[in-house]
Amino acid sequence: MARLEVDSLTKSYGGVRALSETSFEVHAGEVFGFVGSNGSGKTTTMRILLGVLEPDSGEVRWEGSPLDREVRRRIGYMPEERGLYPRMKVGDQLAYLARLYGLDTAAARDAVEQWTARLGLSERVGDEVQKLSLGNQQRVQLAAALMHAPDILVLDEPFSGLDPVAVELMSQVLREEAARGVPVLFSSHQLDLVERLCDRVGIIKNGRMVASGTLDQLRRTEHPQWIIDGPSSAGWLNGVDGVQVLETDGARTTVEVRRAGAEQQVLQAAMAAGPVREFAPARPSLTDLYRDVVSTDDGQEGEQ
């Protein structure tokens, strides 16, 4: 199956290491969320994908071969900073960009009609970009990335500045592109959105990929956590070895189990102390996982 491979990318700016042996894959038909703090290396990685920057070492491959100019022409890219001509009309600009990607006049006109309709911009085709709201400018930027039916989509903070309706529309479009077999890579600080939309997630910190996988894979820990909604009396866990109480909120207690099988003793102790309304494994959100991964400050972050 076709896939985009980022293999051991390293990049320095002077004495600052922006990327260090960064590796991950985005499979065909997959939405991959690329998250990290400002300066963690996300944009540097994307610029290397596009050929704007050269890595000091490492390689990017598509279908097993290094990315060349021809493959990069088939990438749809949406930058964080809007790269549009502010005084140019929306339709003219999109047609112009489509022609740069190799579409003839008729195909470019059809693509403009298709994507302005899909993204709710049909009534804005004759407007100058600078007269649009920031959200509509973001839609135009996405349309520009899709004009040539790309084989790969790379989007840097595509949801920035969008209202909830536009966020839902853009989410639908990205899922439709993935269903078409396109690998979709996007960065975002909106972790709740990443959690809802993505098949897999990569967390980058200080230029290193520190976690990557599905949310279920990222949630796996050596010491699982359990939530008990039951006895409110203090001390009901006394005598249960291998268990640490992480949080107590009234009758709701979260514990970390450090010994195999101890969760059953926790349940028995809770039932002995009173009625149990809930006993379930804790499922941390992506925000919780991200906070845990990046909480330790182990050095100066590289430039983005």
Rank of each mutant, 00 (worst) to 15 (best):
D7Q: 14
Y13K: 02
Y13G: 07
G14Q: 03
G14W: 03
G14H: 04
G14R: 08
A18S: 14
T22P: 00
F24H: 02
E25V: 14
G36N: 07
S37G: 05
N38K: 02
S40Q: 02
K42N: 05
K42F: 08
D56Q: 06
P66C: 06
R69V: 12
V71S: 10
R72N: 09
R72G: 11
P79H: 08
E80F: 01
E81S: 13
R87L: 09
V90Y: 06
G91Y: 05
G91D: 06
A95S: 14
L97Q: 11
L100F: 12
G102H: 09
G102Q: 08
L103T: 07
T105D: 12
A106T: 14
D110R: 15
T116G: 07
L119W: 12
G120M: 10
G120A: 05
S122E: 15
R124V: 00
V125I: 15
G126K: 12
K131H: 13
K131P: 00
S133H: 05
Q137G: 13
L142T: 12
A143M: 06
L146C: 09
M147W: 08
A149H: 14
A149L: 03
V154H: 07
E157Q: 12
E157L: 07
D163L: 08
P164H: 07
P164T: 11
P164S: 09
A166V: 04
L169T: 12
M170K: 01
M170Q: 13
V173I: 15
L174R: 07
L174G: 11
R175K: 13
A178Q: 09
P183K: 03
P183H: 03
V184Y: 01
S187V: 06
Q190D: 12
L191I: 07
D199I: 08
R200Q: 11
G207R: 04
G207A: 09
M209A: 13
A211E: 07
S212F: 13
G213K: 05
T214H: 04
D216C: 00
Q217C: 00
Q217G: 14
R220G: 06
I227Y: 00
G230I: 01
P231H: 10
P231Q: 10
S233F: 00
A234R: 13
G235D: 08
N238A: 15
V243S: 03
Q244I: 04
V245G: 02
L246M: 12
T248A: 13
D249A: 15
A251G: 15
R258F: 01
Q264P: 00
V266F: 02
A270V: 04
M271H: 04
G274W: 13
P275N: 04
F279H: 04
A280M: 09
P281Q: 12
A282Q: 11
S285Q: 10
S285F: 09
L286C: 07
T287P: 00
R291D: 05
S295I: 05
D298K: 11
G299T: 09
Q300R: 13
